[in-house]
Design a protein around this nucleic acid. Structure first.
Lengths: 214, 214
DNA sequence: TTCGTCATGTAATGGGTTACATGATTAC
DNA sequence: GTAATCATGTAACCCATTACATGACGAA
């Protein structure tokens, strides 16, 4: 119960894991750094934060720097800063490792991928492979549907489907490359299976070996 | 007012324009033939149909074969067949030609494209070009955001953004090809600017000249 | 006769947006 | 001092889904 917003909740926990923040900043990071995949409004963010606090995963810190003007640069004059609790951290790890049936959908996957820098290698592999097989299912359905309906569709509809399939195929190739790169990486990544006692595991710097952005 | 479901409404009108159907079949066509971009459930379809009827865009035909058991094969026992009214047809034309600010978003565009076979050439061009410039805006934002945040992001996040941008760039190229093909096509397409009195204008068969699916 | 599919709906819920209301702080 | 932006929230709504309820029809 109180199943507040899968993706938003996940993204908030993930961002707060890196460092405490207040709502406003959180929303900006959601929509810029991580925002490639989705934009959220205050109308969803603030209620979500409340339930996360109620759940014990976050604590509000009203940041009473009332008498410490020592570092005025850190924040203008701290509003409500949210910090991840130990329980929240654990919960986030669970969400990361969780392999529900919807975990491989577009937005869920993108959100998980965005936090790969904080994810252990075995989980990364599971996510990438899960996503890939999800896409392959999708491809098969598309192919089947296409074979069934064939000639009944006009050329534009056909072209639309062709382009859609090509996009999916392209993502599969992308995943293949990522998976291979992961495989080629150091195999010693084991920061505690199930318990991330090591907190951050960037032993390889989280490098997907991007091949020439330009 | 009564601004029921943009895309669903549009798709329903578009499908019914081709031929009358009952809800169940409509939903299947929505999720197979046209369903590449989105799946709808009865929970949204039936209420939508009702409002469209209330609006005067559809009429329910209970298919009164009440006393003619002559052809029990035609329909098992006629359900509720929805047929587009003249007003509905007009409304659909308006929706097709309408260039609202959200008309170029992913799903809106896909839905419009799916009905290109029933769309006049000038509208097709407007839609394709609108979509393209929308994507170009998006690209600029992404580039700006990327330039701003640069080194602050880990490699996975960067890779995600890079892949996202590549996808958008790819779609832009696709649009460029489509636009060129349209331009190269016969230029005489003028079934009445603003008024589609000609109903169907497939003079060129609606051919986007797909270049080798394999 | 029972099972699968066709066929139509409704109520509760979900997960989000928009528009609104409010006020502090900074830049000019 | 006034405008922009930072900052936090709420209420009303939107569009859709899920799960449920119902029933006819055809095939095994």
């Amino acid at each position: 119960m109180s199943k507040r917003s899968g993706i938003l909740e996940f993204a908030v926990l993930g961002l707060l894991r890196e460092s405490p923040m207040h709502g406003y900043e959180l929303r900006k990071r959601l929509n810029t750094s991580l925002g490639v995949f989705r934009a959220f409004s205050y109308g969803s963010l603030y209620p979500c934060l409340k339930t996360l606090v109620a759940q014990g995963w976050l604590i509000e810190e009203t940041a009473p720097d009332s008498d410490s003007p020592a570092t005025p640069l850190a924040g203008r004059r701290a509003k409500i800063v949210y910090r991840l609790t130990a329980a929240g951290k654990e919960h986030f790890e669970e969400l990361l490792a969780h392999s529900g049936p919807d975990a491989w959908e577009d937005e869920h996957f993108a959100a998980r991928f965005a936090f790969f820098g904080q994810t252990s290698k075995d989980v990364r592999m599971r996510v990438l492979e899960g996503r890939r097989s999800r896409l392959e299912e999708r491809l098969e359905k598309m192919r089947a549907s296409l074979a069934r309906t064939r000639e009944r569709l006009d050329d534009y509809t056909l072209e639309l489907q062709r382009h859609g399939m090509e996009s999916v195929e392209r993502e599969v190739r992308w995943l293949n490359e990522l998976i291979e790169t992961e495989r080629a990486g150091r195999t010693d990544n084991r920061p505690g299976t199930g318990r991330a006692d090591n907190d951050n595991n960037q032993e390889n710097g989280g490098r997907p070996e991007s091949r020439g952005t330009a």
